[in-house]
Design a protein around this nucleic acid. Structure first.
Lengths: 239, 239
DNA sequence: AATAACAACCTGTCATACAGGTTTTGAGGG
DNA sequence: CCCTCAAAACCTGTATGACAGGTTGTTATT
């Protein structure tokens, strides 16, 4: 009952893969934008001549990748760019030991050297303030590691946002999950208050450089920050 | 019949999300490596006290993200790191116009400036040869744009591989899909044979620098290459 | 015209069934 | 005792039907 969309060319891509392609293809060909509704499962079922089971698994898969949003009663809609899938891939790589924390930090360093420079050049005043605020909150809560970490992460995401390139934001945010799992380790190696405050000072320096609009200085401070962070992780024995 | 794993804390995460978490959690807690088998759908069904439908949608979602491999008759296995999900996210961003090709190129430039430097430092002889071979094949097939493009993509992926950091490979490969859709445009703006051969020469220069183990030179050539590529795309009106 | 009840539609979940694959088992033969 | 091979047990892929509950548009009542 389902031969038309599955020409005997390939061996066995599976009906679900075909359905996934059909849906993404629909988004493309109809030029849908985030928020626009997709066909209902029933409609897709008829169009593809497959069971609702197959269509549902396809929708669900796209939903898991956060390419579409689903909720009960409503039709699925095209989703805004989201980091969901990427974080899961990275986390999967880490937990299955296919990538190391240090490798992630190398990538982060590479990317954030760029985002910080772009942020210095392109930030709005609001964005500069948001970045500075995160740094300030790190200092104000510095007795509470959990809070410092969250503001640290927000700090880096705010810089990525100020780069005005959503692809950078996407990647930086995707790494936040890994950061949450390793951050405390780095913090602990900075045993003294001075060492911890010094690290916070580093963030403030970055925020200042962005405020001043000095990309070179900002990048320098960011490099220093990452070098120290990686050293802290290495000291803690994180390969 | 399914209250135990769904405490009344959150409003409605959905049974499938819960199942997805349970599966990834299983991978983590059992310390599974790529190739290791996961519980069968029936086993998961019993463990979570939900219907097979729910478990299946969860498995299928993870499979769509390429975190697990599924095939008929066999149990699902933990997957090797794969770029599947990432490419889909990027492509989704492009087709829904949430990100621009130019923004992707900026990210690529940032990342590949680093991969090329790392490749120059860490490449094995085999890897250097693979990189050089791709450049050579670009020249040999230069009357066939399609072939040139594929070797071009392979060239960049080979460099990422030679960086010995799989996260870089992951990201670079994720961008290959976008490249396939825009490459020809850049090629066409290089209307004359000289311009096209010059572009190929650029790749050979990069390969040489990597072979020599000169990261600075390699990065310089790579920067030049990207600047020209972006210029070509801009000339063609790709924002 | 505002509102409230209703109908139509949609997704979320469950149960069941069966067609192929794949692995395990075990019987029979060497 | 070991090897071979076929049956059995298990597994995934897909289809069908059912029903609960959420959402939206329609209609009837006030």
């Amino acid at each position: 009952m389902q031969e038309q969309t599955d020409p005997p060319g390939e061996p066995n891509p599976g009906l679900v893969s075909t359905a996934i392609q059909a849906i993404t293809q629909h988004i493309r060909s109809e030029g849908l934008a985030p928020g626009d509704p997709l066909p209902s499962e029933a409609a897709m079922t008829r169009q593809l001549n497959v069971s609702r089971t197959v269509v549902r698994e396809a929708f669900r898969s796209l939903s898991a990748m956060r390419l579409i949003d689903m909720s009960a009663g409503r039709r699925a809609t095209v989703a805004k760019l989201d980091t969901g899938a990427m974080s899961m891939v990275i986390e999967h790589g880490i937990t299955t030991q296919q990538i190391s924390v240090q490798q992630v930090y190398d990538v982060r360093r590479t990317i954030e050297m760029r985002t910080v420079a772009l942020a210095a050049l392109r930030r709005t005043d609001q964005e500069a303030e948001a970045i500075a605020r995160s740094a300030r909150l790190m200092r104000e809560n510095f007795t509470n590691p959990e809070a410092v970490m969250e503001h640290d992460i927000a700090f880096h995401e705010a810089i990525a946002a100020a780069s005005h390139n959503p692809v950078f934001s996407l990647i930086v945010t995707a790494f936040s999950g890994v950061t949450r799992r390793t951050w405390v380790i780095g913090w602990r190696t900075r045993s003294s208050d001075e060492a911890q405050l010094k690290m916070i000072k580093g963030h403030e320096d970055i925020a200042d450089a962005i405020l001043k609009g000095d990309p070179r200085l900002a990048a320098e401070h960011m490099a220093e920050h990452f070098d120290k962070s990686v050293k802290a992780l290495l000291d803690a024995g994180i390969a």
